[in-house]
Amino acid sequence: MIDKNRRNFFKTSALFGTVALGASATAKAAPENILSDDRKGVLVDVTHCIGCRSCEWACQTAHDLPADKIHDYHDREVFKEFRRPNNDSYTVVNEFENPNNELLPINVKYQCMHCDRPACVSACIVGAFTKKEDGSVVWNTDMCIGCRYCMVACPFQIPTFDYHKAIQPDIHKCDFCYKRTQEGKLPACVEICPVEALVYGPRTEIIRVAKHRIKRAPNKYLDHIYGEDEVGGTSWVYLSGVDFQTLKFPKHGTKTAPGVSESIQHGLFAYFVPPIALYAWLGGIMWVSKRKNAKQANEEKI
């Protein structure tokens, strides 16, 4: 009985191991996460933004979201309260007091920053998020299971969710107008901005332009390009004349958002070695303890 059990033990262990190895081989189907050299970016120059909210209108229209007439968007009453991107508006403009000139309030547009090393891509349980070659972070809504882990992971609190839909609730966020840019068009917000507070172009060029603006007008700008290094760099970068924290940007270091989490994951699952080793170790203990017990039982019988 014992011998038979032991033989079984090895046989079945081998079988299990093969299955595990097979699984590890297919585990390479990770989400697409490209960091291409000529990825695009947008420079948001907060000092130029006039708060006309045309970008909000353009975004709504480009994404087939409910939109009022563009004229209604010029209403500045909405600035009375701080707004965030929502599941029916992917970009919003907020207003802050200008400490230097109360007649020129500071308007700031918010949307997905399109991180170079996005937390959502790393976090998504089904790998629905993708960092594309052009720098955009987009997601495949057909894969989404609605777990909202991307919302937990996002360092900028950007993805939003249809809480009031019972069927097919979706994640929503700025998609960098992926469809439009693939057709050679500009992102809708960049195209409509009357003062070109948003400049679209290769990210390297964007950073160069931003640095030059700071150099040309050191009194006007803070010597800081928000997003150049934050969370490992973002596709959208910001220039401002006042501290970014007063504009309600989160204070981030240069560490990438998924950094530690991914290293832990990869450490625990490095080619499935640690789990298999644990399995083998426990199996060994089980085998030894079982034999000891059996011996004792035999001795007792004798």
């Binding site: 130029h48 006039i50 050679g184 068009k185 500009l186 960049v190 195209e191 901005c193 009357p194 003062v195 070109e196 400049v199 679209y200 172009g201 060029e205 964007i206 160069r208 332009v209 030059h212």
Partner: peptide
């Protein structure tokens, strides 16, 4: 044109409006 090669100088629309 907004969609252009050289983005270091604002386009005409932006120049007017600014």
């Amino acid at each position: 044109k907004r969609n252009r090669e050289d983005i270091s100088v604002p386009d005409l629309e932006a120049a007017y409006h600014r």
